[in-house]
């Protein structure tokens, strides 16, 4: 394309304008991408801070739970004290005695306050029928529950172990 202009002219700038516009467009897209990336970074940092905070909270809760477990132990001990106060050995012995026929004798008694008052009894009966009556009376008594006969040795007399949970009351 020839040009016989006598002086430099304003050239057709459409192509240049299009190129510049395309450049501006690319720049705008790049800037938008940078802003988006920056926003992502900020959001990521915020998420990190939030995660760290959550972690601290979780640790704090874990510590609190540890503390509460300690508290449970204390409560358990307190419960044992309460149970001990509610079921003094004399009262327990009296309740057992009431359930015991004349031909049955208590040889030993173990008190276990874990999970209430668990009793481990070793008894001796002159004959099996007396032992059976003792078990029946224990099971029927409102002061006992979970009556479980254990090992029995039968010779002249009958020696047996019995487990039961003392509920208290009269």
């Amino acid at each position: 394309m020839t040009d016989f202009s006598t002086r430099p002219r304003r050239k057709d700038r459409t192509t240049a304008v299009l190129i510049v516009a395309a450049g501006v467009g690319v720049l705008a897209v790049a800037a938008a991408g940078a802003v988006r990336a920056r926003t992502d970074v900020v959001a990521g940092r915020a998420a990190l801070v939030e995660a760290a905070r959550s972690l601290e909270e979780m640790k704090a809760r874990a510590r609190a739970l540890e503390g509460s477990r300690v508290g449970s132990d204390e409560e358990r001990l307190a419960a044992l004290v309460v149970v001990g106060r509610q079921a003094p050995p004399a009262a327990v012995l009296a309740a057992i005695e009431r359930a015991m026929p004349a031909d049955v004798r208590l040889d030993s008694l173990v008190f276990d306050y874990e999970g209430g008052l668990q009793l481990q009894m070793e008894v001796q009966a002159r004959h099996p029928a007396a032992y059976d009556e003792f078990l029946a009376r224990l099971a029927a008594s409102p002061q006992f529950q979970d009556v479980a006969p254990g090992a029995e040795v039968r010779d002249d007399a009958l020696r047996a172990s019995v487990k039961a949970r003392y509920r208290g009351g009269r």
Binding site: M1, T2, D3, F4, S5, D12
Partner: peptide, 12 residues
């Protein structure tokens, strides 16, 4: 007219 270019008729 805003003269952008001057051409010669036979060449064009």
């Amino acid at each position: 007219l805003v003269c952008e270019r001057v051409e010669l008729s036979p060449l064009a």
